[in-house]
Design a protein around this nucleic acid. Structure first.
Lengths: 187, 187
DNA sequence: GGGTGATTTAGACATTTGTCTAATTTTTCC
DNA sequence: GGAAAAATTAGACAAATGTCTAAATCACCC
């Protein structure tokens, strides 16, 4: 569990607290295709992605619609399900072999209650998440598909290299056919 | 400042704490058209909407694009600007005469630091906001314009009654021309 | 209460995006 | 290394949405 400690040390926690925190986390490996969250089941753990890529997706009449792709260094949870401990309406699965540091809702709540410092840390994380999600939402209002693709091109080259285009298309809110047109046009 | 106290009492705080909290809030009235946040200026206060309707909008080459409409009982802030105290990239203004309870970033941080109870309350608010924004973002991926309009119809009748259709169109991510078509089709 | 400006609707046409399909290229796996 | 599956591209046409414009309706103000 060394790496988790290092993470918390780098996030500004003292050695002592970092050790205490890291004890609440469990490390888990995922094969490609393994599910972290399954639609209908409650999302019991929050995770930090130490390695790998995960896909959030919904089932809409048999078709899988990708809503987000999370990568190394990000957090993983079906937010509504985890926060209110109710069945998830989305799925999350590994697109590559992956390694997660997971903490249960119960342990997280305990940490938040017990450690003033961690509580502030959690607020920071929440605030960061809000800003990110809000910006992403805004992109759908302000930009057309081509602009959204170009933004993705700038901000996340790894995504382009490692994730099938059909998933990116779905995440951009267009069909693969149309993404192909967009890519053709840019050239 | 009575109403603010009532609000905090109803949110589960003790009389004593509710009084202390309410002292940090200032009440302010807005005329229709008054700005709460101006693009380029830092959003210094977080507000609770006691009365009125507010429009979030961006300037895109002279055109005003509405990203959100906030109503009575909601919170008001340009999130990224307020949280990191940097210049806002959006505007927020009153669509109707309005009344806000405002708290400065400094006072909010103080409350969060000083009151364990308030800190937890703030986490609750953040978590609620995340879930809301995330759902709204998802609507743009999962639903087409007509479905988004119908959802708005179900969930927020007040919006339909009190906000000009051109603004709703902008918020749905379509032109007024197309919203008119959608409304015509539903009949 | 009537004029003025804002809001809403809608026609005609252009552009964007989706659907269906098939060909081509790439990846995977034994 | 080669067969099978998956991913990517693209043609042809359909549906959705935007642009420009004008008419009709509504709201507001003196």
């Amino acid at each position: 569990m060394d790496e988790v400690q290092v993470f918390f040390r780098q996030s500004g926690f003292s050695e002592e607290i970092a050790v205490a925190l890291s004890e609440k986390f469990i490390e888990k490996s995922f094969d490609k295709g393994d599910y972290f969250v399954l639609e209908g089941k409650t999302n019991t753990h929050l995770a930090y992605i130490a390695q790998g890529i995960f896909q959030y997706f919904y089932n809409k009449g048999g078709e899988e619609i990708t809503s987000y792709i999370a990568m190394e260094g990000g957090f993983l949870a079906s937010l509504a399900s985890f926060m209110s401990q109710t069945p998830a309406s989305e799925n999350i699965r590994a697109l590559t072999p992956a390694k997660l540091w997971m903490i249960s809702k119960k342990n997280l709540d305990q940490l938040i209650t017990q450690s003033e410092e961690f509580k502030s840390f959690y607020i920071q994380i929440l605030e960061q998440q809000i800003v990110c999600i809000d910006k992403s939402r805004l992109d759908f209002i302000m930009l057309n598909a081509e602009e959204r693709y170009e933004k993705m091109l700038c901000e996340n080259v790894t995504l382009l290299q490692q994730v099938p285009l059909q998933l990116l298309a779905s995440m951009l809110g267009v069909t693969p056919r149309h993404l192909s047109r967009i890519r053709n046009q840019i050239r």
